[in-house]
Each structure stands twice: as C-alpha cells, then as structure tokens.
Design a protein around this nucleic acid. Structure first.
Length: 656
RNA sequence: GCCCGGGUAGCUCAGUCGGUAGAGCAAUUCACUCGUAAUGAAUAGGUCAGGAGUUCAAUUCUCCUCUCGGGCUCCA
C-alpha cells in the first residue's frame, strides 16, 4: 500500500503517502497549519509531530491557540530552562519541570549548595534565548529502564524518577506523570549533544517555536514536595504563544498587585501590622474597623433573622476540654502553647466548637429544641508557620463567623439545604455572584461514624448543592475523618477564586462529648453537629472584599460615604449644613474645608475612593443643590439635595 | 519551619566603592479664597529594623536576631 487514510477531527478523511508524519499531514492541509502545529493527537493521545502515522489513525493537530498547545509550549520552554541552567552551572542537576497555570517551573540542585539569585535570571534568560535562536530539534528516544539509569548517570533525581515510575507498584504521582511513561521503558528528549532530559513528552518540534516567555522568580521547593526531603532551587517562568499574550499576562499581574489588600489596607488607612505585635497579628484602624463593624453588623442581623442564637465564649480553656475534643491529639502543633496557673493548664482556643458544645450540654435537650443553631464571632489563635502568614488572608489571630448546628439525623438534609441557601444569600449581599462548590466525601481510611450517617450527610450535601443549582465538583475521599463537607469558592472581580464558606458535618465531636437529645419515643439519641463558617474568617473576608472591590467599597460599606467640598471659605457654612443633613439621615459624611484648592481636595477624595464627592458653591447655596462627583463617573451639577439623598438611600438599600 | 530577596522620614523611594543621609507626597506655619484629579513658600521630621564583630571610623563589610515579600511545606 502506498497510501494511508487518516481521519481528521471533523470526520473527514485524508489520504497521505505511507510513512507520512503528523507534520506531513499538517503541511498537506496547509502551510499555515504546518507553521502553527506544535503537536498532534493520534487516536486520542498527544504525540510529537514527527511520529509516522498508520493507516486508519484519527489525527488532530494542536496549535498554541489551544490550552493543550500552550501546555506543550510551556513544558518545552521548561526544558530550555533546564538546558540553560545545566550549561551555565556545570555539575548541577535537575529534577522536574512541568507546565503549570500560565507557565512552567523547573527544580534544580546546584553544586556545592549554590543558590540562584534574581540576577542569575538574566543570565539564564540570555542563554535560553540563545538555545531558542539555535532552533534545536526535540528528538525523542526510548530505552529500557536500566539504560535510562545509565543515560542519566550522575543525575540522582532523574534516576529516582526512573526507579519510581518503572517499579511495578509505582503509585504515579501527578507531578512525575509528566516526566515519563510507566511501561518499563523510559522516554527522553535530546535537544543537542549536550542536553537530554527524561520526559514523556510530547514537545514542540524545535526550540525555535518558543520565545514568548519571562523568567519570573526563584524559590525554594522541597524534592517531591516533602519537607523531609532536600530543598531544591526552583525557577518559575511564564510562557505564551505570542508577544501580545505575554504582555497581557504581565499586565494582569500588575493589576492584581494593585489590588493587593495589604497595599490597599495601607493606602486607605484601614489595617496595619506593627512589627511590635508579632507576625500575623493586625491592628484595625478606625476606617478599617468601621467597615468591619458594618460587615459584622450585617452578619449578625442576618443570623438573628435566620434562627441562630448568639453566644460568647472565652479565649482560653483548660487542657481537659482540648483533650476531650481531640485537638491536643491531632492539632497541638497548630495551637499556641499552654499557660500554667493555679495548678491548671490553659490553652488559647484554636476553634470555637468545644465551647458551643458546652452550651449544648448545659441543658437536657429534646428533639423539639433541634435544630439548635449557635452563632458566634469567635476569635481564635492558631500557630501558623511563619512562612505561611499572608496579610489578612492567613493570620495567627482571626475571628470566625462560626456556627454550630445541632440536629437529628432526620433533620440533616433539610438543614443542610437551608444552610447553603443562607450562605449564598449572604455572599451575594457582599457582591459575589460567581460560585464554585466542592463536595468532599468520606476518606478511604480512618473515619468516624457509621456508613448510614455518612451516606445521609453526603447525600444531604449533594441534594443541597443540586437544589441550589450550584456548580460543584466532587473530591472523592477528600473529606475530613469526622464528616463530609462543602466548600464554597467565590470568584472575584478579576476572576480569581477564593475559598470562603464551608459547611461540614461532624460525627466526631458529638461522640467525644457524648451529646444526647431525647427523641419523641423517649430514647436518648446522639445529635449530628454541623460546622458552618460563612465568611470563614472576618479578617480574611475583609481582605478578599478589599481585593474584589480594589478598595472602592460599595456605598453601604464605604467608611466615608460622602465628602462635601465648599468651593471657597464663603461656602463652608452651607457645606456644613449639607453634611449635617446627610448625617441626620444616617450617612457617613464630612466637610473638607476650603483651606486647600478645590482641585486638590477633589483629587484627595478620588484617591481615597470616596463614593460621592460633593462640591457646593454660590449657586448651590442659593438653590439647595449640590455638584455630584460619583466615583468613576462624570460630574453632575445642580442636583437637588433631595434627589441626591434619594440616590444615596437607593445605593445603600441595594448594596450598589 | 525551609529556600531566595528585602527593611533608609508617616508613605513611595534615591543614596553612601566605609567618613553618621536626600527627594516627592503627607504633616505644621504663612500667603493665596479658588466650580472639579496636585497653588506657592517656609518649617519640622531619620539610633539608616535590632544586636555583635572587623575598622581610626559601620547606615554601608561580616555574623546573629527580629521582621516583610515571593515560593515550598502546612492550613485535622
């Protein structure tokens, strides 16, 4: 047979000469595609373009306009990074280098424990561009494992990978999966006489296809992600199909940096982290505290109307409580150390749950009392690793909007459904519209509770998600040992996902604390507990809101809602009456007296992201009007006070 | 906790190849009284994160500590 038939993704067939490769197919279809194609899918599997095709193959061509193509491009760029580093640091060795979101990384071990500095990135970048300029082909080879070991003589991490993936019971981890095939043979790619890398592939045909990349940063990373293993030197980069995409990505990073809540907290005078306090401990300045109070007030109001009972509990408790709860057994590392006094040992609380359990236990409970919903804004202290601390998003002292719901098994499903509705409703009130949920089910080992209750709770959570019409993924076996859970992520204004709310069933604490209620048949039964945090932590939620709104809080949350600017000193008195009237209506308003020029005061108001900056002059004093500068909008002159007040009222009412 | 990089005025930063520091903004005072994103001038403000070492001399070099940032790990 001198020709083969190939099926294309659209179902059409194409006839090619025997021995043709995927690259030939691309060329046959058109020169544009020949240039753009990076890899092929052959019968559903990604392969290099130089792979010969067989009669009857289904073949698709992947370009850099697809996610798959970008991934290949990034993976190939990581190889070029490795080649550059190995060339520049003789004696260095390399571990793994996968594609990741937006880019790639590669882990290295430099001789003599050397480390990269930021300056090294420039040298590496230059070397990489040299390699790309040389347009070296990526040539695949395959050898048995033992030959592979010889091929990577002196490269212990590569050898470890070969051993790992070719051992019969190799549990392939995801990171290594991109390195090799687990079929007793290993594949590698040769770019030049000096460089080969263990790799499953596929790769772009040659290094000349690459180039729109930027090395971003140097970081330490443990070999195999295990803190017991050696620390390797990781270089991160970003790579795109063209210059414009790369530029846009860098621009997005800049925009995200502008929204950094730590930067905004400083600029807007909301929160600070004095070194004197210690890592992960913040002080809330008046403006930040005001926003937080508004958030908390809103939360309390919703909970009050949602059938919750408020509670307050202490910040410390004796060791016995934490022994019963189990925290000292499995969470001691995360707890602040104990305080000894009066012959007893006290711990700061890392969680509120045991206290709410105490409230439950303070009385004999009937099924008629259930569900019992306890709510507290409870401040907890956790000893987070110093390197894990991140502004308000991860701190050592924070306030959970913590609810514990005690219910019977029979009530579980309805309760979970209404809880989820409640959570979503409150999140929407804060301007979040886009949600993604995760349902985590029973872990394969070590779980408490019988099958029946796990099923009931898991199905209850699933039903709640279905009923709410929420997108969700299932993390099989991802639940805690004490019960299944739902985590809710929200997407912010620039598309980043934040995990905020959680609803967790708990079969463990009711056992440990021997909780009971009297059922309608007089029997004593064990209730189920549900942990539910909505903001997660007030501090973290505040940080997320700050980034979501880029500091421009909606009117109902803005620490200062209106500034009134008299044009000149002659108008100070009228400005004061406008301010006083607004305050009388319950708004947060202030006059900025005419000591500075108007332009300067307008600018300051805008910089502080004040929702409304009003300017009042002669005309306004005469006609009881104001000049309205709404944040982000053009000036409106001669607006009557009443019209403006109605607009404010509407903004606050609708949370606009 | 681990790897890398930082810490200079309230803020954003410059600077000193070792001779104890500078700008802009902010603050204060004075003048200007102004209809929409920075009026002008003057003044004040710093143990150059802290400690130790080397040196005639350290903010600068070295070491340690604290702390911040980026990652890793962790977040039952």
């Amino acid at each position: 047979m001198s020709s083969i038939a190939i099926t294309l993704p659209d179902g059409s067939e194409r006839s090619l000469k025997t021995g043709s490769t995927a690259a030939d197919l691309a060329a046959d279809i058109g020169p544009g595609l020949a240039k753009a194609a990076l890899v092929a899918t052959i019968n559903g599997e990604q392969r290099d373009l130089d792979v010969p095709l067989a009669d009857g193959d289904s073949v698709g061509l992947i370009t850099d306009s697809s996610d798959d193509g970008l991934e290949v491009l990034r993976h190939s760029t990581s190889h070029v990074l490795a080649q550059a580093v190995l060339a520049l640091w003789p004696g260095s060795t390399f571990a793994i280098g996968p594609a990741i979101d937006d880019g790639f990384y590669y882990d290295f071990d430099l001789p003599g424990g050397q480390t990269f500095t930021d300056d090294d990135l420039e040298r590496i970048d230059a070397k990489m561009r040299e390699i790309i300029g040389a347009d070296q082909p990526f040539i695949r080879g395959e050898v048995p494992a033992d030959e592979g070991m010889a091929l990577f003589e002196g490269h212990k991490y590569k050898q470890a990978i070969i051993e790992r993936v070719t051992s019969p019971d190799a549990a392939l981890d995801a990171e290594m999966a991109s390195e090799v095939d687990a079929a007793g043979t290993v594949s590698f790619y040769r770019n030049s006489d000096d460089f080969i890398d263990l790799c499953r592939g596929p790769h772009v045909p040659s290094t000349g296809r690459l180039g729109h990349f930027k090395l971003m940063k140097v970081a330490g990373a443990y070999w195999r992600g295990n803190e017991k293993e050696p620390m390797l030197q990781r270089i991160y980069g970003t790579a795109w199909s063209n210059k414009k995409e790369l530029k846009q990505h860098l621009h997005r990073l800049e925009e995200a940096a502008k929204r950094d809540h730590r930067k905004l907290a400083n600029e807007l005078d909301l929160v600070s982290w004095p070194n004197e306090l210690g890592p992960g401990l913040a002080v809330w300045h008046p403006k930040g505290a005001l926003v937080r109070k508004l958030m908390e007030d809103y939360s309390r109001d919703r909970h009050e109307h949602g059938g919750y009972h408020f509670a307050y509990t202490p910040h410390i408790a004796k060791a016995a409580l934490w022994e019963t709860s189990g925290h000292l057994d499995f969470y001691a590392d995360g707890m602040y150390p104990p305080m000894e006094l009066d012959g007893a040992t006290y711990y700061p609380k890392p969680m509120n749950c045991p206290f709410h359990v105490m409230i439950y236990k303070s009385d004999q409970r009937s099924y008629r009392d259930l569900p019992l919903r306890i709510f507290e804004l409870g401040t907890v202290y956790r000893y987070e690793l110093s390197g894990a601390i991140h502004g308000l998003l991860r701190s050592r002292g924070f306030t959970q909007d913590d609810s514990h719901i005690f219910a019977t098994r029979e009530m579980l499903e309805d309760e979970l459904a209404s809880l989820l509705d409640f959570v979503l409703s409150v999140l929407r009130a804060f301007g979040f519209e886009d949600f993604q949920a995760k349902l985590s089910t029973r872990p394969p080992e070590k779980a408490v509770g019988d099958d029946e209750i796990w099923d009931m709770a898991t199905e209850g959570l699933r039903a709640a998600l279905e009923k709410a019409g929420l997108d969700y993924i299932v993390d099989e076996g991802g639940g805690a040992f004490y019960g299944p859970k739902i985590d809710v992520d929200v997407k912010d204004a620039i598309g980043r996902a934040w995990q905020l709310s959680t609803i967790q069933a708990d079969f463990n604490l009711p056992e440990r604390f021997e909780l009971e209620y009297v059922a309608n048949d007089g029997e004593r039964k064990r209730p189920v507990m549900i942990h539910r945090a909505l903001f997660g932590s007030v501090e973290r939620f505040f940080g997320v809101l700050l980034e979501h709104y880029a500091g421009a809080f909606p009117v109902w949350l803005a620490p200062m809602q209106v500034q009134v600017l008299p044009v000149a000193e002659a108008h100070d008195a009228f400005a004061d009456t406008v301010t006083a009237r607004l305050r009388g209506l319950g708004y947060r308003a202030e006059t900025i007296a005419a000591t500075d020029p108007l332009g300067k005061r307008v600018r300051a108001g805008k910089s502080n992201k004040i929702p409304y900056v009003l300017v009042v002059g002669d005309d306004d004093a005469a006609n009881d009007t104001v000049g309205v500068n709404a944040r982000g909008q053009d000036v409106e002159r001669d607006v009557s006070f009443e019209t403006f007040a109605a607009r404010l009222a509407n903004d606050v009412e609708t949370h606009a």
